[in-house]
């Protein structure tokens, strides 16, 4: 019999329902601090500290490359060189700092979370937690999502400093923009709301990446193939929803 509603409509709605249900359970378990306290610190180290070097590296190069390209495009004698500093600073704080960090975390942390939870699911470790009388959502998901929400803004701030620093450095060393002019431009056009917007964005990104990856991992089905599928889906879905959230937040808040 041909189904009345195609799977292409039912599956996303069903996934959204299960995602909401999982979040509901997770919010309910937030108060059970004793069940995830020990795990929280470990997750904060894994999500935050362990990701710091690659985030700093990527942000530094993004800032440096953006500086070179912006300088290359702004060759008119009517445009002051300091505008490069303003553009790089604004784009790092408003967009690149959060998005670069988000993509790195989606690939690095999101995939790891989905693989970890997926393996635990297919090897019945999650069932083992449940049968012991432990709230598996509280024990496994809450610390990962809380770690993501807490550590993403920290990584975002580090990314902004590194990106702007990388831009200053290449601007000075490569002779594209003198350091004084870069700093002058950055200060002249600085908007106090920009970093607030960036922090809001990083909180949302941290929540989305970790919660989506937890969802994909927690409901993994099948063996090794299922874990592989969950891992890929976690990284891809995190990136897609990150971009969507980026657009929505820009439209709503800027």
């Amino acid at each position: 019999m041909v189904p009345l509603t195609p799977d292409i409509i039912i599956n996303p709605i069903s996934a959204l329902g299960r995602y909401s249900q999982l979040l509901f359970h997770a919010f309910g378990a937030v108060t059970e601090v004793a069940s995830y306290r020990k795990n929280l610190w470990r997750q904060m180290v894994k999500v935050g500290l362990d990701s710091l070097p690659i985030v700093m590296l990527a942000a530094t190069f993004s800032g440096a490359v953006s500086t070179v390209q912006t300088s290359y495009q702004l060759v008119s004698p009517l445009i002051p060189r300091s505008i490069v500093g303003a553009i790089i600073t604004s784009s790092m704080i408003l967009e690149l700092g959060a998005v670069v960090t988000g993509f790195i975390l989606a690939g690095r942390v999101g995939a790891r979370i989905a693989a970890e939870l997926g393996t635990m699911r297919v090897t019945e470790q999650i069932d083992a937690l449940e049968t012991m009388g432990l709230n598996s959502v509280g024990y496994l998901i809450v610390p990962r999502v809380v770690a993501g929400v807490v550590m993403f803004p920290v990584l975002y701030i580090a990314a902004c400093f590194c990106g702007i620093g990388g831009g200053m450095l290449i601007g000075e060393l490569g002779g594209f923009v003198p350091l004084e002019e870069f700093i002058y431009g950055a200060r002249e056009y600085f908007q106090p709301f920009d970093p607030i917007f960036g922090i809001i964005k990083s909180l949302v990104f941290g929540f989305l990446i970790t919660s989506i990856s937890c969802f994909k991992g927690y409901y993994t089905q099948g063996g090794a193939e299922g874990v592989g599928r969950a891992t890929t889906q976690a990284a891809v879905a995190s990136c897609v929803f990150l971009l969507l959230a980026d657009l929505i937040l820009a439209v709503l808040l800027l």
Binding site: E124, D127, G133
Partner: peptide
Amino acid sequence: VRRHFGVLFQGGALFD
């Protein structure tokens, strides 16, 4: 109630 149970899963389900 579950705390009254011990379960041995097919694959052991040890935390790796």
